[in-house]
Write a protein that binds this DNA or RNA. Sequence first.
DNA 1: TCCTTTTTATTAGCTCAGCTAATGATCTAT
DNA 2: ATAGATCATTAGCTGAGCTAATAAAAAGGA
Lengths: 149, 149
Amino acid sequence: MSTRKRIDSEATAESLHSAAIHLLRRLRHADAASGLNSARLSALSVIVFAGPITLGRLADAEQVRPPTMTRIVNALAAKSLVTKTASASDRRTIHLSATMKGKRLLLQARRRRIRSLARQIAILSPHEQKTLHRAVAILNSLAARPVTL
Amino acid sequence: MSTRKRIDSEATAESLHSAAIHLLRRLRHADAASGLNSARLSALSVIVFAGPITLGRLADAEQVRPPTMTRIVNALAAKSLVTKTASASDRRTIHLSATMKGKRLLLQARRRRIRSLARQIAILSPHEQKTLHRAVAILNSLAARPVTL
DNA sequence: TCCTTTTTATTAGCTCAGCTAATGATCTAT
DNA sequence: ATAGATCATTAGCTGAGCTAATAAAAAGGA
C-alpha cells in the first residue's frame, strides 16, 4: 500500500515535470509578442495584483534571489511599467507599483498567453477540462506553501 | 454556455501557467545536485529513451532551435554523457546516443528530482493525487501533439 | 549616545539558455 | 556538373539565474 502509493507519486511527479517544461517552452512563443518574457510577466503580474510590494518580498514570491529580481524590476522600470519608490518608514526598502501602462500591458499579454493555452485546453473534453482545472488548483495551493523541499 | 466554457478555459490556463513557472523554479534546486540543469536533463532524457536521434529531431522534440541544441549537446558530450557520431547514410547529420555514464547519471538525477516532487505530492490527499495524476496525463497528451498554437 | 549587528538592495562577475544571421558541409535534383 | 535545399555549427546578441562583496539604513546593546 505504501509502496504502491509512492510509485504513483513518482510517476505523477515524472510526468508533471515533463509537462511543465514543455508547457513553458510553448508559452515562450506566445509571450514573445508582448515584448516581455515569462520571468518579467510573472513578476509584473505579482506587482499588479499584490499591490505595492518590496523587492525582497517579490523575490521570495517568485522564488528567486534578490539580485535576480533587481534586474527584472529594473528592466520593467526602464520600460515605465513599474515605479520604484523608497519607503518612508524604512528607507532601505523600495515599494514597487505598477504604472497604468504596466497594468494595461500585463492584461493584454495575459490575454494572448492565456488564449493560446486556452485554445489547447479547449480541444479537451469537458470532463478532461474539469480534471485539469481541479489539478492546477491543487498545484497552486502547493506552490503557495512555504518551501517544504 | 460557450462563454462560460471559455472563461473556464482561460482561468485554467492562467493558473496552469503560473503553476508551471513556480514548479520549475522549485525543481531547479533539486536539479542542481546532478550538475545538470533542466534543459540538459530534459535533452539527455530524450536521448536516453528515444534512442539514437539526430540533433535536428532532438531540437524539434525539445521545441528549441538547432543552435541551442548544439550547445546543450556539446555540454553533454564534454561530460561524456552522450556521443556524437556522423551518420553513415547522410553525413550532414549526427546521431546522438547516451553513454553508460549518461544513462546512469540521468536515472540518478531523475530519482532526486522526482523524489523531491513526489515528496510534495505525497502531502496531498489520495483523491487530490488521483486528480493530479489524471491531469498530467492529459497535459502530456497535449504536449505530444504537433504544435497547434 | 556610539558602536556593532542585522537587514535590504545593488553591483560585479560568472554560467548558461534562448534567439537570428551567416557559414560550411553534404545531399538532391535538374 | 552545378544549383538549390538541408543539417549542423559558429558568431554574436539578450537575458535568467547564481554567489560574493558593498552600501545604506535600521535596530539594539554597552
